[in-house]
Design a protein around this nucleic acid. Sequence first.
DNA 1: CGTGATATTAATCGTTTGATTAATATGTCA
DNA 2: TGACATATTAATCAAACGATTAATATCACG
Lengths: 224, 224
Amino acid sequence: MPRKSATPKTARRPGRPVGGGDAEVRAALLEHARALFLKHGFADVSTRQVAAAAGTTSAMIHYYFGDKLGLYRAMLEEAIGPFVASLQRLEQAGAPPPDLEGLMVGYMRMLATNPWLPALIVHEVLDEGGRLREQFVEQFAGRLAPAFVEVLRRERDRGALRADLDPRLAAISALSLCIFPFVSLPVTSRVLGFSVTGQEFERLARHTTRLFREGVAAGPGRQS
Amino acid sequence: MPRKSATPKTARRPGRPVGGGDAEVRAALLEHARALFLKHGFADVSTRQVAAAAGTTSAMIHYYFGDKLGLYRAMLEEAIGPFVASLQRLEQAGAPPPDLEGLMVGYMRMLATNPWLPALIVHEVLDEGGRLREQFVEQFAGRLAPAFVEVLRRERDRGALRADLDPRLAAISALSLCIFPFVSLPVTSRVLGFSVTGQEFERLARHTTRLFREGVAAGPGRQS
DNA sequence: CGTGATATTAATCGTTTGATTAATATGTCA
DNA sequence: TGACATATTAATCAAACGATTAATATCACG
């Protein structure tokens, strides 16, 4: 016998819920949007999927963010916001000239601490036609990369680096050494058993900075 | 006055076309599928788009390849086939132990010569949940990476490399130095004015191999 | 208390997508 | 020359998608 209006199971009727005044639905949407969009890409994830993961309906996306792209933008803003802010803070604080090793290790630690960052870089920066690539490049790569070049040029002119070193190429090499081990982790963890957790991260960081300075060759001199 | 059945413009009626016996429609589909899928990703490109670019209809995709995924698989097969074949040829040919520099430069030249390869790597290998990632990893990264490790281990035991060098980490560094400059080219070309055409490629190759051997530090000894 | 702002569900709309089919025209070969 | 294989277009289908709306329930405040 079907009851009139009291559906007994989890089915809920429309209407504002009782408890929370805090925007927990909005936060849940952002959280699951980050997890899903960064894992599978923007086009591969539907608004219904995100809403279901967050325990709500796709209409809430329209309510809080306007549309799917609005949710994506808000998610990215929240994700890279802290990094852009800390970058600005560094620039304004009189720019205490950072040392090479500190810069590299700091950058790597940032990638290791936020495991979703490499995926974001792949989807947003490396991927052709990544949404918001413009913004990401301007606010992030466009400032970090020239800073790297400047540090290298200064160290070279100071005599600490080879005189014939091209700072631009060296910056690209440094960024490659710092970033690629993390964005390629899904592959290297399988084909090489690689990992970057805790102790292994320290080994990677030491190895990378030393390789950049000294290379892999044996002995103090050069060979052949 | 609308004519009865003779639509005068380019509109064509069904039926087998007159000339070609060669499968030029199939080839055109593969060609434009590669361009579009590698540029925008599998999910972002519709079968209608590919068909229109190839000057035909989406029914031809069904006719020649079964479905969208079949077209994608065939495109990838055609794209990476030559590389897998040459890899097998190298393995079977008694494995003439390759030198480090040759391996690195050869790998980089491969990326420079086929400009769509970096995009393929981003979409298929680095991207979480990339279709055919399994196959690509097994046939490509899963063979190239261990080969790299083996070469490094041999050179280290031979005394050419530092005794305390971890071959696994060194292999990851070498791959980073070789691959990342190419996959990050869409970014570095904008923020650093970087390029890898002709003469610039030679400079990059020389710089990279030398940095891997000797590092960036000045002088023959070490510092601090 | 009651009225408007807020938050939520369920239902639905129009579009696009991948896939398929019927019709049609050419090639091939006995 | 007729019959079957091949290749193509146009039309269409069901499903999924993004987006929107109407209904509904609670909250905040006078």
